[in-house]
């Protein structure tokens, strides 16, 4: 348990290093240095390098969810909570809720993590992406009082995946790693659109108003950013084969 907490602390520190250039919407100057350094590394992917420290942490977190699923492992659950609850809470507060509401949704999110751990699939998502999706859905439910329509893989009308190919050949951890690097190589304009959409939960129309640009421009930045990330995944996949 001590090791995991240390990992969590390390990740928090890592998060703080990165926070400057990613979340500091108006900040300029020194924070750009980090982005430039990162894009330099991302520009020269080296498939020969072993898994990063980060990936190892991510695999540990995935294993915690599996431990909850397989044997209702309460210690593993407590570790997930300590690692993710503060991040989920920060995400909710960014999205404009008050602290009481955020605490309720954090609680809700982790009750869902506990109950639905069996549905977690490490091939599809890292622990962070899976918990993000749960928190996002709970946020829609509670903050907007709307339902979140989702497909159901158990539904007989669901069209199952064909044999694994392309992007699917990457593990979720490799994909997250590629995304992490590629996010730092996006233009600031594109990154801002992703940040406002994912992190602040703003619609494209609201982003257009906030940035004072046409809606069409916001959408095209979103498309370009997504295209860039998909190209980065493709490059990563090719480097591995």
């Amino acid at each position: 348990m001590g090791r995991v907490i240390r990992n969590a602390v390390r990740s928090v520190q890592w998060g703080m290093e990165k926070t400057g250039n990613v979340l500091g919407f108006r900040r300029r100057g020194p924070t750009r240095g980090t982005a430039v350094a990162d894009s330099a590394t991302a520009g020269a992917p080296n498939p020969g390098t072993g898994p990063s420290r980060h990936s190892a942490d991510e695999r540990t977190l995935s294993a915690r969810i599996e431990a909850v699923a397989e044997r209702s492992d309460t210690a593993a659950f407590a570790e997930l909570f300590r690692h993710f609850a503060p991040r989920v809470r920060a995400y909710l507060l960014r999205g404009g809720g008050d602290a009481g509401q955020a605490d309720d949704v954090v609680q809700d999110t982790f009750a869902t993590v506990w109950r639905k751990a069996r549905l977690y699939d490490r091939r599809r998502a890292t622990a962070a992406a899976w918990i993000f999706a749960i928190a996002r859905n709970r946020r829609i439910d509670v903050y907007r009082r709307e339902r979140r329509p989702e497909f159901d893989p158990r539904d007989p009308a669901f069209q199952p995946d064909p044999l694994p190919d392309g992007e699917r050949a990457l593990t979720a951890v490799q994909r997250a790693e590629a995304v992490r690097k590629a996010l730092n190589t996006l233009s600031e304009e594109q990154r801002d659109v992703l940040r406002l959409a994912f992190y602040e939960g703003e619609t494209y129309a609201a982003i257009a108003v906030r940035l004072g640009i046409p809606l069409g421009t916001v959408k095209s930045r979103a498309r370009l950013a997504f295209g860039h990330l998909r190209a980065a995944l493709e490059a990563r996949r090719e480097a591995l084969t």
Binding site: M16, A85, P86, F132, V179, F226
Partner: peptide
């Protein structure tokens, strides 16, 4: 593509500075 979009969300959440402490009775 949705998996990719959600991994962006996960990545953003990972980059978040942990905001205060969360009451552990929540566990």
């Amino acid at each position: 593509r949705l998996d990719l979009a959600e991994s962006i969300g996960g990545e953003w959440m990972n980059r978040t500075r942990a905001n205060g402490t969360v009451d552990e009775t929540g566990i």
